[in-house]
Computed example of a mutant assay.
Amino acid sequence: MPVPSAGPDEPADAGDPSSAAHPRAHRRRGRARTVLLIVALVLLVTAALGFVAARVTMSAYDRAVARDVLLDPDARATTPGAAVRGPLNFLLLGSDRRKSNPDMGQRSDTIIIAHITRDLDHAYLLSIPRDLLVEIPAQPDIGFPGAYTKINAAYGYGRSARGGARLVARTLTRLTGVRFDGAAVIDFSGLRSAVTVLGGVRMCVDVRTVSIHTGAVFEKGCRRMNSAQVLDYLRQRDSLPDGDFGRQRHQQQFIKAIAAEARRQSLLVHPIKLDRLIRSVAASLVVDIGAVSLPDLLLALRGIDDRSLTGIRLPAYDDMIDNISYVVAERPRAHDLFDAVRTDTLAAWAAANRSWVNRI
């Protein structure tokens, strides 16, 4: 195994080229803004319910969302303008870039591969651990020589939302063989307003959790959480028995919870509330779906809601290398999982590997 490359600030936050000056601040922001990524996915998954009646609203959303080229050519599955057909794979990234302080750098602690089945009726959410040990390929056009380090470093090495997303996509395609039909990058600013618009969401806490940030105690059981509580809960990693794997599971649980809330409230027959939710997310979102419009994509995904979501944990284990903590993919099970994503056989993989299916 190659020796991992030491990032500029290791071991404080190995592989993160941007957090040396403010490691605590970046850790707080990195964990908080992950939820915005989830809200973006939920809109793609749930807004198609009753879509025809809301096409005008969705068209406005399409115009409001920023577009960019976020996928490296080697990581793109389809040509721009191709019809929306399953199966589909989307790369979803959370960025901690702040408009108010762009000089503080950026990273992506949240990476999710969303796999939509051939029949466009089920979504599998595969969370990629932030500390996964990978080979990040060289990117000569930005002077990056390549590195063997944590995957969350790739976004920062890319130097921008576009460059970072492209480098993450290229890294994942080399690792998994999966090519992507689209990508989205979302930052921190829309979380509170999005959850507030919904009036909170019902979360089911699966393990007693004590916040290391506020001291709040989240007892086991289901309860309604407001935006501040959700934000606090989804930040937690160090206080969980399974660490970042637990944080990933809670993110997936939140995807299902907010999708269920959107369905329960029938948002598409409440255009004012839907408009507020859409605008709270659109300002924080950059997407790449080629020439396909968001309304057309949402129409294609109209068969998916909270009842057709499955959370997947990457088969991997924690390891210490040169006194730095990494997550290492477990062979051959992780590679079998990547094969299942490529061949649209995740249902069979999940049935045979239930211990790696998250309860969401």
Rank of each mutant, 00 (worst) to 15 (best):
G246E: 10
D238M: 15
D242L: 12
F218R: 03
D232E: 07
G182A: 03
S211V: 00
M203I: 09
M225W: 03
C222E: 13
S189P: 06
T214I: 08
Q229M: 12
P241T: 05
R208H: 09
R249D: 12
G215R: 13
Q229N: 01
R223S: 00
T209V: 00
V197W: 02
P241D: 07
V197H: 08
S193M: 09
G190N: 01
H213C: 04
A194G: 02
S193L: 09
Q251D: 12
A194K: 02
G243H: 06
Q236R: 11
H213E: 11
A183R: 03
G221K: 01
D187R: 02
S193A: 12
G221Y: 04
V207H: 13
E219A: 15
H250P: 00
L240E: 11
P241I: 14
D206R: 10
R208P: 14
D242V: 09
F188T: 03
R235E: 15
H250Q: 09
V210K: 02
A184F: 03
V230E: 01
F245W: 05
L191Q: 13
G243L: 03
A194F: 11
L240G: 01
R223V: 03
D232S: 02
D244L: 01
H250N: 07
T196W: 08
R224N: 10
T214E: 10
F245T: 15
G221R: 00
S193R: 13
N226P: 00
R223Q: 07
H250R: 14
R235A: 03
Q248I: 14
Q236M: 06
G200Q: 05
V205Q: 07
R235V: 08
L231K: 01
P241E: 07
A216G: 15
R224K: 08
Q229W: 06
M225N: 00
R192S: 15
G215I: 11
D206S: 11
V185A: 10
G190C: 10
T214A: 07
M225K: 10
H213L: 10
T214L: 03
D206A: 06
H213R: 12
Y233S: 05
G182V: 15
T196F: 15
S227N: 15
I212L: 13
R202Y: 07
G199S: 07
T209F: 00
V201L: 09
Q248P: 11
Q251S: 07
L191A: 07
S227W: 10
I186E: 05
D244C: 02
S193D: 09
D238I: 08
H250S: 06
D244S: 09
N226C: 07
D238C: 10
G182K: 12
G190S: 14
S227L: 05
D232A: 15
G215Q: 02
S239C: 12
G190I: 12
G199N: 10
H250G: 04
A228R: 15
S239N: 11
R237Y: 06
N226S: 01
G200T: 10
E219V: 11
A228N: 14
A184W: 02
G221N: 02
S189E: 06
D232G: 06
Q229L: 13
A194P: 02
G182F: 08
S211W: 05
A183L: 08
V210E: 14
G246H: 08
C222L: 15
A228T: 10
L231A: 09
N226V: 13
G199Y: 11
